[in-house]
Design a protein around this nucleic acid. Structure first.
Length: 210
DNA sequence: ACATTAATTGTGT
DNA sequence: ACACAATTAATGT
């Protein structure tokens, strides 16, 4: 397990910090669709994503979901950082998009590391920055882009994080992520298929070119 | 191999 | 948005 840590975090953290993470952290394997964090939950330990993809969702009053962004290996959830420090409830839900591995770190250690390790401080700050940027981007796309452009963006993102040129989701599932109706997604995908950009199948979509 | 059924996808209003 | 048609995959016989 230590090996996996070093391959993904070796460039970022110094040797000593890696060792400590390995000591105090507990590894956890997530299967696809497994919930890592629920809305309203208090966070007592924060996850470092070692491998896989986790999606971060927001929920509206009626229980509709909206995808905020994806976390890849080497990322951590910015929400958990805030919640741990401030001991407040999570505002988001985190679900494993693919099989994933995380290492859970106790809150007390995180604060201690903030003082002791420069690399840790940097890590926290930069993940903060990048998560905020991603959030701005999705905000932009919701505010300024049409659904067809959002779908395109969504698929590009999905292809990038999963490293597959096939999206294994039903139209309905995609619609949930983008908080729209299935029919809209079906129609847009059909258009893309006619343009030769994708090939539609049941339960999956093959990407030809975006 | 065929029929039945359930889920997903397509289309017109 | 809704209703319904068409298609596909899964399952049983």
């Amino acid at each position: 397990m230590f090996k996996e840590l070093t391959t993904h975090y070796g460039h970022i953290f110094e040797e000593e910090l890696l060792k400590e993470i390995n000591e105090v952290g507990t590894f956890k394997a997530l299967s696809e669709g497994e919930k890592l964090m629920e809305i309203g939950q208090y966070i007592k330990s924060m996850p470092l994503l070692v491998s896989g993809v986790v999606k971060i969702l927001r929920e509206d009053n009626d229980g509709n979901e909206l995808l905020l962004y994806f976390l890849e290996d080497g990322d951590t959830c910015a929400m958990s950082l805030v919640c741990c420090m401030g001991n407040t409830q999570s505002e988001v839900r985190a679900v494993a998009e693919t099989k994933s591995k995380v290492v859970m770190l106790p809150v007390e250690k995180m604060e201690e590391w903030m003082f002791r390790f420069k690399s840790w401080r940097n890590f926290v700050l930069t993940t903060y920055q990048s998560r905020l940027n991603e959030l701005m981007e999705t905000l932009d796309s919701i505010a300024f882009l049409n659904m067809d452009e959002r779908l395109l963006k969504y698929m590009k993102e999905k292809v990038r994080v999963t490293k597959k040129n096939t999206i294994y989701n039903t139209h309905q599932e995609i619609a949930y992520d983008l908080n729209t109706s299935r029919v809209v997604i079906s129609r847009l995908l059909k258009k893309l298929e006619n343009m030769g950009k994708v090939k539609l199948h049941r339960n999956y979509v093959k990407i030809i070119s975006l």
